[in-house]
C-alpha cells in the first residue's frame, strides 16, 4: 500500500470516525442522563444537515457561525422534543413503574418520533436531494498525497467539539451535576437539585451533538431526508462496542468503525461491512459491556 493511499484511507477513516464519535457521544449523554435510548437520533442528525443547509447554503452565513447556530438550533429542538414527548411520557410513570418498562416505553416513543421527523421532513422539504458547497473545496496535493481540506477541517472541528465537551463535563459544576445525575438521579434530588432541568439539558446537549455531526458532514455528503436512517444503526453499534458510559470507549469505538470501514473496504471489498458486524458480535461475546464500558469493569 502506497503512502498516498494510506494517508487517504486514514483521513477518510478519521472523518467518518469523528462523525460517529459526535453521534455516539450525543446518544450516550442522552441515554445515561435521561435513560432514553433515542432511536430518533439519526433524524436529529438529518435535521442538523438541513439547518446547516439553511444557514450556510441558503442564507450564506459564515461557516463557523452557521455550524454554531446549527448546534444551538438542534439543542432547542432537543429541548422541545424532551418537554413535548419524553417529559409527558415520564409524567405517566408512577414510582412503581419498573426501570425496564420506562426504558422500553421511551424507546418506543423515540421510534415513533423517528418516523414523524422522517416523514415530516419528507413532506416539508420534499425529496429533492440537496448539496452544500464545501467552504474549503481545496485539495491538498503534496508529496504525492492528495487530501481534501474539507475532510481535515471536519476532523479538526470534531476534535474541538470533543475538547469543549470534555471541559464542560469535567471542569464545570454543570458537567459534574450531569455526571452525578446520570449515575444516580435520586441521590442528586436528595441534595436539593431539581433534576428535571438536568434531564432537559442532557437531551438538548445530546441533540446538539447530533445536529453538529449532521451539519459538519453536510458539505461532504448530500442532504436528504433518508440520511439519518443508516447512521443510527452504526451509531448504536459503536455505542455497544465502545461501551455505554465511557467517553474513551466511545471515541475508540467511533474511530475503530471508521478505520474498519475505510481500510476494510480497500483490503476486503464488499464484505467489509459484514466484517464490522461480526466484530461487534465477537466483542460483545467477550466483553458484554463493550470495550471500555461501565459493565466491563
Amino acid at each position: 500500500m502506497s503512502l498516498s493511499l494510506f494517508v487517504q484511507l486514514l483521513v477518510n477513516a478519521l472523518t467518518i470516525g469523528s462523525i460517529y464519535v459526535l453521534m455516539v457521544l450525543g446518544l450516550d449523554i442522552i441515554l445515561r442522563g435521561t435513560k432514553i435510548l433515542n432511536f430518533a437520533h439519526g433524524q436529529l442528525y438529518m435535521l442538523g444537515a438541513y439547518v446547516m443547509f439553511l444557514f450556510f447554503q441558503a442564507l450564506h452565513w459564515n461557516f463557523l457561525l452557521s455550524l454554531a447556530l446549527t448546534g444551538l438550533a438542534l439543542g432547542l429542538v432537543g429541548m422541545l422534543i424532551y418537554l413535548g414527548v419524553f417529559a409527558t411520557l415520564a409524567r405517566r410513570f408512577t414510582p412503581t413503574t419498573t426501570f425496564s418498562y420506562r426504558l422500553l416505553l421511551s424507546a418506543m416513543a423515540s421510534v415513533g418520533l423517528m418516523m414523524i421527523l422522517q416523514q415530516g421532513t419528507l413532506l416539508g422539504f420534499g425529496t429533492q436531494e440537496r448539496g452544500i458547497q464545501p467552504p474549503f473545496p481545496q485539495i491538498i496535493d503534496s508529496f504525492g498525497v492528495r487530501v481534501s481540506l474539507m475532510r481535515l477541517a471536519i476532523i479538526l472541528a470534531s476534535l474541538v467539539i470533543c475538547v469543549l465537551l470534555y471541559l464542560l463535563m469535567n471542569k464545570t459544576s454543570l458537567g459534574r451535576l450531569m455526571r452525578a445525575v446520570s449515575y444516580d438521579p435520586e441521590a442528586v434530588t436528595l441534595q436539593g437539585v431539581n433534576t428535571f432541568w438536568v434531564f432537559v439539558f442532557c437531551f438538548a446537549l445530546g441533540s446538539a451533538l447530533a445536529g453538529l455531526a449532521g451539519g459538519i458532514i453536510a458539505p461532504v455528503f448530500s442532504v436528504t431526508p433518508a440520511m439519518g436512517q443508516d447512521v443510527i444503526f452504526l451509531s448504536l453499534l459503536v455505542l455497544l462496542v465502545g461501551g455505554i458510559g465511557s467517553y474513551r470507549g466511545t471515541i475508540a469505538g467511533g474511530l475503530l468503525i471508521g478505520l474498519l470501514l475505510s481500510f476494510g473496504f480497500q483490503l476486503l471489498g464488499g464484505v467489509a461491512e459484514l466484517f464490522v458486524f461480526m466484530l461487534v458480535i465477537v466483542i460483545l461475546i467477550f466483553k458484554p459491556g463493550g470495550m471500555l464500558g461501565e459493565a466491563a469493569e
Partner: peptide
Amino acid sequence: PTLFMQETVFENVFSGLHRHYREPAWKAF
C-alpha cells in the same frame, strides 16, 4: 449508600456542597 463511586471522597462531598449553593453554572465556567 448512594455515592458517586467513580469520584473521590472529597469530590463527593464537594459536589454536594456546590449543588447546595446553586451558583449558576456559567459563572463557574
